[in-house]
Design a protein around this nucleic acid. Structure first.
Lengths: 207, 207
DNA sequence: GACCTTAGTATCGCGCGGGTACTAATTCGC
DNA sequence: GCGAATTAGTACCCGCGCGATACTAAGGTC
């Protein structure tokens, strides 16, 4: 979830005697036949009070980088929960901004790195940014999330034009006054599937 | 690899007594600590005479869809080998166009589907199309590969303009006459890293 | 030599993206 | 109270990328 202009990662306190003090939430594999997605949803349910609005696998890791549980193979997942999900977490869990992560087991570091890359790559294929916000939000909120995830500033007018053209949001009619400045209108995520435009090939991202 | 206007998948003959006649090339996991990428490269090396120019993980699969080896968890990989790699394959392996795949174990079907999606999603992040062609190729060849992978026709002039602007290819100076029609100039993949352009957010692919 | 087929280029128009600048509505400081 | 600061939202302009159309080039086939 986003916490003041940064993405934050949920960590849980490691058991006594571990090499690190914090770990990613994880669980050992149960009996055969369980879907990985269900298993990941279980882990998430145990870690945060509300279900993530987006949850996706980022890959399997089995090299010699150490996992806290010393398991041979780990399957990493990323999820998104709305900003403001800090209440009722319990003492054993906390959000850490990605730039200030505590020491993690090497394999967990790799998983976090892969998760961040996955988020960036799937940002325009899945409604990740919307799942990082509460159900009603301002357009400036939304733009801030995109700027956090992309790591660069965006042009306000272009952002809104593109958003409008894709008809992804609906105004709720309510307005929110956030301290100083003009109040902003609240929107909700309400995609009305227009025929998606097919554009040319992008060579400029290659390499 | 591309085979007459379609992508083709390499399958190997299943051992006697299996439920299906063909399977994806696969190997059981060895002892702990082996990198998955090395393992995948090994499997590829055993399956095709030349090393794939691109190889990437597509994810882990552990639901109750059956794997021919009845393993609990499988990690799928995709690779790309140049068109024309059909010689010296041996009798136990063959290329099948994706539209005419024989019956496969359910988990292998899922892996193939995920692999195709991965190819499409990473097409403009990794030089996949170039790895599906021999080291020297015509621009029409390249465009055909992109059209196969994207599943739609592309505009010739736009395609070449964008390619030129990204300075990804160099003319070799040679020309190839392919039956009828004007001979085409041969190019090689020679990316000269220009500063990649940062463009706006795409909302139109979302959903 | 007429015609087909494929390669490659030129020109034009439209729409998108981004820069700049503007208006609108609220809080803060004095 | 009133201006300054701050944030929201819009208007205009310009350049470029994309796609349509049409054209030239160079080889085959009959």
């Amino acid at each position: 979830m986003p916490v003041d202009r940064q993405l934050a990662v949920l960590l849980v306190r490691a058991p006594e005697g571990s090499l690190e003090r914090w770990t990613l939430p994880w669980a050992p594999a149960p009996g055969t036949g369980t879907s990985l997605d269900e298993l990941a949803a279980d882990v998430a349910r145990r870690a945060v009070p509300i279900a993530p609005g987006w949850l996706e696998q980022v890959g399997a890791f089995a090299d010699d980088r150490r996992h806290p549980g010393d398991v041979a193979l780990s399957v990493g997942f990323v999820g998104a929960v709305p900003a403001g999900t800090r209440s009722s977490l319990g003492e054993d869990a906390a959000w850490f901004p990605v730039a200030e992560l505590p020491a993690l087991a090497p394999r967990h570091q790799a998983i976090v790195a892969a998760a961040l890359e996955a988020v960036r790559h799937r940002l325009d294929l899945a409604p990740i940014a919307f799942r990082l916000l509460p159900s009603s939000f301002t357009l400036s909120d939304l733009q801030r999330v995109y700027e956090i995830l992309l790591g660069r500033r965006l042009h306000k007018a272009s952002f809104r034009r593109a958003l409008q053209a894709a008809s992804l949001v609906q105004p709720t009619g309510e307005w929110r006054s956030e301290g100083r400045g003009r109040p902003a209108q609240l929107f909700r995520f309400a995609p009305r599937r227009r025929g998606r435009r097919r554009r040319g090939v992008r060579f400029d991202l290659l390499g």
